[in-house]
Design a protein around this nucleic acid. Structure first.
Lengths: 121, 121
DNA sequence: CAGGATCCTTTACGATACTG
DNA sequence: CAGTATCGTAAAGGATCCTG
């Protein structure tokens, strides 16, 4: 009897695992959750705002990540007709559906700190 | 008046955003969610099982990711005293607390597929 | 202000081969 | 079986300069 994949032969498991893969592909990279979490809190933010809020990111990465997120319709980019152009980024309704994931991630991060703290005392 | 960070000056926002950062640092990389999602479904799995279940991963990455996860106490590695050694990996109780995040990610991935489908018809 | 172009360094990742 | 070692590519990340 040959050894075969157990989980990936179960349709329910396969669907679940491949859904995880799909989601993470869209949200891949170091910054996506961070940017989305910021935009979820911040309503409309400009490029420079994000550069300040998303600690550690540089213009190149920010620009690239924003393009990725826009392509996937998670955020909306609006160019305002001002003297030196103004660009606003905001999360879309679709993007807001990620809210529950991001909430869970934030909650867990806080719980993790507490767990670390308990362990060290 | 100098422009300053809005969100990161708000303690509540700052806590949240830095919690997101913390979580994602622990779960960084292409494979962590995938591996954890598999171990959540699969109880005890051996190295070769994981290599089969986590489609696309190679031995080097699997080995490295498993070490990362073990270091963060999210999974447990058990060496069994057999002829050619057997090693079992399983998720820890602490690791199971990531379940809600992973559930949300899986749910969203399925919903995303549906959204794509609707948009294209 | 909002970014693109360029250059350079550092990780991340992948394929294959090898060992206890 | 459960990995480690080695090599090579690709992507991430940082710094600086530049433009509409």
């Amino acid at each position: 009897m040959k050894k075969e994949s157990i989980l990936n032969n179960n349709p329910i498991c396969k669907t679940r695992i491949s859904a995880i893969k799909d989601t993470m592909e869209i949200l891949s990279g170091k910054w996506k959750f961070h940017i989305l979490g910021t935009l979820l809190l911040g309503d409309k933010l400009r490029f420079m705002d994000l550069l300040r809020e998303v600690e550690g990111i540089g213009t190149k990465m920010l620009s690239k990540e924003l393009q990725d997120l826009e392509m996937n319709l998670l955020i909306k980019r609006t160019v305002l007709n001002t003297k030196p152009v103004t660009v606003e980024y905001e999360i879309t309704e679709f993007g807001k559906t990620l809210g529950s994931i991001i909430d869970e991630i934030a909650k867990w991060g806080i719980a993790y700190k507490n767990a670390l703290y308990k362990r060290s005392e």
